[in-house]
Design a protein around this nucleic acid. Structure first.
Lengths: 336, 336
DNA sequence: CTGTTAGCGCTTTCAT
DNA sequence: ATGAAAGCGCTAACAG
């Protein structure tokens, strides 16, 4: 297919120097006579030579590549984090492997090992299911740098960036309470995920602080999908004494709730208030525009990328970063 | 960091055989005595040995890796294609590089070359801006297999899968015409993209077939975003003689239109009908649920992956595949 | 400053 | 069926 592979040797020969010298100009080492460097560079360009990254990786024992492991790339939330990571990392010339785990614990482990065998530098673990302590030992063996994204890490020396979801959900619940709501439903994500747990905790703390008794029939554990939210709403509103407001652990589930209520002819927000979380792109364009806990999604990705860059260059675990979410009030909430 | 790197040599030594033999069992060659193979496999497992894929890649001149190049990974449409590709390709053990181009022509070219230097096998070009003929010559030089996804390729021997958008949009426009609409607005995506052009063509053909004169003030070129759709709607409905129906080149723009109309207090569908395209996850949960041209997104990705697998194994350009879109009628359209 | 010499970890002839 | 040896394309000492 290719006419003749142009390698470092070819460049060396046509330039009348040794491969080592070519390698030196390739890597911008200073001890090369400028005129020679110039000549070599010219030939490189003329022959459209691109160094074989794999050979380079073999001798260095590392390839300038990062891995991103996400539960579900087709979820906007994760794909936006990916994009942020990519954009931030691109200037360094690092390529990025992407892997889906579908939230399956073992898949996550396998993928990590597989990536390690490719001599990559670091791995971003977005909303990982593998526990922090295991991540730590696993990556020590592998010689790869891990950065945990969007998952709280405590009592474990690990590079990580996450959002303070507890505080965010206290705020969200209080917004509803301030509007006079007392029967506030909560639709949680999978409680095995720390974020889901934290959001639920925030909601509970707010209730407690305002002397509202928690009602078990108003809590549902769902799965972060539109359908899941729809089903949860169906269950919640079929019962006697339905809530006057619903707080959802993400926007997708809130969309499911909105969809169910629209179908039932229940008006939002006059009859029921709805709050989501994430502030995905469509949130402000829904009917009604959704009040939601805006997650700093892009910032999450950018920060993660910066942590990684710092981590791989200093070889020291960088300090963790805790970002803040912010309630964005739109028209899906009103007084009781 | 690592205790001691376990390489093929270590395995060979502890098994009392040569590296060549270990390599043979690794690659499932038959001429190895079964008992030896067993023993080697045992040691591999015991020492948790994972072959160095980079070294392997260097000698083979190829790494079992594919690249996916998309305009914008944070767009659900593309991220779902990615997921489909990934899932289909995963069983073969191929890893996947992901790259964003932001729809920039030159970025696309650079990325392709960069990926090639990593000795990858093939590249999926999703909705590429680089013209087909250039793709062909570029990849021939590079020795990498290209598969074009979601872009019509004609008059050029290139592996590709795309959707028949012309027919789909004829159907969509006729749906509106059948409901008595005569003033039908059209919000196009960037017309440099073949898909956008095709959708516009479908709309035009339908109008012509039904004797409706095209009205330039009813056509807008936008950018496939919610905001773009919103702005287009604003322009369209500010003028005298606004349309009674709007056909959009994707769902995101349709959401923008819906959002604008809601804000203006214009009822959908009783006052204005709206049609989108893609059938993204939220489409059925909007208010009102969106009538849309459902693109076989997942199938697009799966087919692309299959083409790639076929391409790389046979080394022959596989036949192109043209998928069909289907109009899904929901509640955003009604009679005039 | 520059060239020579060894490998990086693996696969692949070529012998045996 | 198995081992020895060469080499993929590059970088990294080590000389000079």
């Amino acid at each position: 297919m290719v006419a003749k592979k142009v390698t470092i040797k070819v460049i060396a020969k046509t330039a009348g120097v040794s491969p080592a010298t070519v390698s030196r100009v390739l890597n911008n080492e200073r001890n090369v006579r400028p005129e020679i460097a110039e000549r070599v560079r010219g030939i490189i360009k003329a022959l459209d030579y691109h160094p074989n990254e794999v050979a380079r990786g073999l001798v260095k024992g590392k390839v300038n590549t990062l891995g991103v492991v996400v539960p579900d790339i087709s979820n906007t939330f994760f794909s936006r984090i990916c994009k942020a990571i990519q954009n931030t990392v691109m200037p360094t010339g690092a390529a990025v492997f992407l892997h889906n785990t579908d939230g399956i614990l073992n898949r996550e482990r396998e993928i990590i090992k597989e990536l390690a065998s490719k001599l990559i530098n670091g791995i971003f673990l977005v909303a990982p299911r593998v526990p922090a302590t295991e991540i730590r030992t696993l990556f020590e063996e592998l010689g790869v740098y891990p950065v945990v994204v969007d998952a709280r890490v405590e009592n474990c020396r690990l590079a990580a960036v996450w959002v303070d979801n507890v505080t965010a959900f206290i705020e969200a619940a209080e917004h509803l309470i301030a509007k006079g709501h007392k029967r506030i439903g909560f639709i949680a994500g999978p409680l095995a995920v720390a974020n889901s747990k934290d959001r639920l905790d925030g909601y509970r703390i707010a209730l407690r602080n305002h002397g509202i008794k928690e009602n078990a029939s108003l809590n549902y554990e769902s799965d972060f999908t539109i359908e899941g939210g729809y089903e949860a709403a169906k269950n919640m509103f079929r019962k006697a004494n339905p809530p006057t407001a619903v707080l959802c652990s993400n926007d997708l589930m809130a969309i499911g709730v909105l969809s169910y209520l629209n179908k039932q002819g229940v008006e939002v927000p006059s009859e029921v208030s709805v709050v989501g979380c994430d502030d995905i792109d469509v949130a402000s364009s829904l009917y009604p525009p959704l009040t939601t806990v805006s997650q700093p999604i892009y910032e999450l990705g950018v920060t993660a990328a910066q942590l990684m860059l710092q981590y791989t260059s200093t070889k020291e675990v960088p300090p963790n970063s805790i970002l803040h979410a912010k309630l964005i009030v739109r028209n899906s909430t009103s007084n009781v």
